[in-house]
């Protein structure tokens, strides 16, 4: 087996071990288990409101000990005729002790949705959530300082939204679109 295949197999193996544990503890919070047959990564879809308690369990349970939050990633889906638009916030967790990983996903409506901040569990989330707010407009409840981080303070809109319109000028500086 090649190294790449071994790594993918390890990810699946972790998911098969950890998904049932979370599901048993929080039967109502787990909305969906995505175990793709091929190369895509497995995901566990969590109800937004109970994200914090699930994370608290994942971090403090000694058998899991997810002490490293790798990143918080976001993606915007406009939706179409048959499906509603949504914003997906994905948390990539890692354990330095057990060397296993877990991908948590939260699905939010495009407007007005919010998700509890996990800043108090992992400080990594602080800047990552600020970035998600800045570029994608996701609101994190309970974040200590939810302000823009990469764009200018008075920037308007959230650039990574799929329906974002590039402004014609910013403080009198004309924007040239090629």
């Amino acid at each position: 087996m090649s190294t790449q295949a071994a790594r993918i197999a390890k990810g699946k193996e972790d998911a098969e071990k950890i998904f049932p544990m979370v599901k048993e503890k929080f039967p109502d919070a787990v909305l969906e288990e995505s175990m793709p047959a091929k190369n895509a990564d497995p995901f566990l879809v969590i109800e937004p409101a109970s994200l914090h308690e699930v994370c608290e369990y994942l971090k403090n349970e000694s058998e899991l000990n997810f002490n490293l939050l790798h990143t918080v990633s976001t993606a915007d889906f406009l939706g179409g005729d048959d499906e509603e638009g949504r914003i997906e916030v994905t948390y990539f967790l890692d354990s330095t002790e057990h060397v296993h990983r877990l991908n948590l996903k939260v699905k939010l409506p495009r407007e007005g949705g919010s998700v509890p901040s996990v800043c108090d569990l992992w400080q990594t989330a602080n800047w990552h959530e600020r970035e998600a707010f800045d570029l994608m407009g996701v609101h994190f409840e309970g974040h200590p300082n939810l302000v823009r981080i990469l764009c200018a303070e008075d920037w308007e809109g959230h650039p990574l939204r799929k329906d974002y319109v590039i402004p014609e000028s910013f403080h009198g500086i004309k924007n040239i679109v090629y």
Partner: peptide
């Protein structure tokens, strides 16, 4: 094909991850 992956490698400064959808 349709799908999403997260791949991380050890960079010179730390762990570099790419989430590609």
């Amino acid at each position: 094909p349709k799908g999403e992956v997260y791949h991380k490698v050890e960079g010179a400064r730390g762990e570099l991850g790419y989430h590609v959808i």
